[in-house]
Amino acid sequence: MTGAFRSLVRSRSGLLGLALSAVVVAATLVSLVWTPYDPGAVDPRASWAPVSGAHWFGADRLGRDLFSLVLAGARTTLLVSLAATVVAAVTGTLLAAAAAVTPGWVRAAVGYGIDVLIAFPTLLLAMVLVAVHGASTLTAVLAIGLGEGFFVARVMRAEMTRVLAADYVLAARAGGAGTWRILYAHVLPNALPTLTVLLSLVMAIAVLAEAALSYLGYGVPSSTPTWGRMLHDLQTQLTIRPQVLVWPGLAIVATVLGFNLLGDGLRDAGDPKARRT
């Protein structure tokens, strides 16, 4: 994989993606040990404090330090989007593999099942989960992860079907390879570029979905700072002091862009044809 890493770093957009993602991860790690202020600490004297040495990003109405909130928000946002992406990747790939390699009616049933599940809105799924388990980080992860997982399954089913029709799969079958070997040795590696790009997209969507769910009250508990909740709390200021909205907005844009560029970069880096030896 060293060759793959080298070619990732060599491409300009791949490097930018890697850098942006690294900044987000670093912010998350830093927030675990240090934030300038307690992100929940209310300070009436600092209400709407401007950008200054004391408050790098300014403060909100309650005088909470925005920089501390953005740092702490990275934690939840990254956790939820990463976990949701893993859930989406696992459910999506398993469903797609089941739909691509199982014989006859099972294949048709799984295929139709995916189509039906795709039509099931993530929001509705979240509401059902909240009704059963109450709003929690886990609920948000499952709702986003499963909802996106069905979407991943749909795309991956088509991709795996394409790879299964390739001559090298026929050659492998003629060489005596069984279904499992074909799946892990041929289908997964060749479907991986699509999965990588898909997952970077899913991760980006998950950041936005978490923001939306938190905004509606179906996501993480209201005491936990997230970028979505910050946007929600600050939106009334859009016409009065728009500069406060810039920070969580910028954080979301940087994360989404970083993941997307990293995904594209990884796709190209994993391709032996793009790698020059």
Binding site: L170, G175, G176, R181, N190, K273
Partner: peptide, 23 residues
């Protein structure tokens, strides 16, 4: 078509070894 009958993501040695392993 040897362009499509070899898995682009497998080294030649692995491709040639595949039937040996599978069988």
């Amino acid at each position: 078509d040897p362009m499509s009958s070899l898995d682009p993501r497998m080294t030649v040695a692995r491709a040639v070894a595949e039937p040996l392993r599978a069988l």
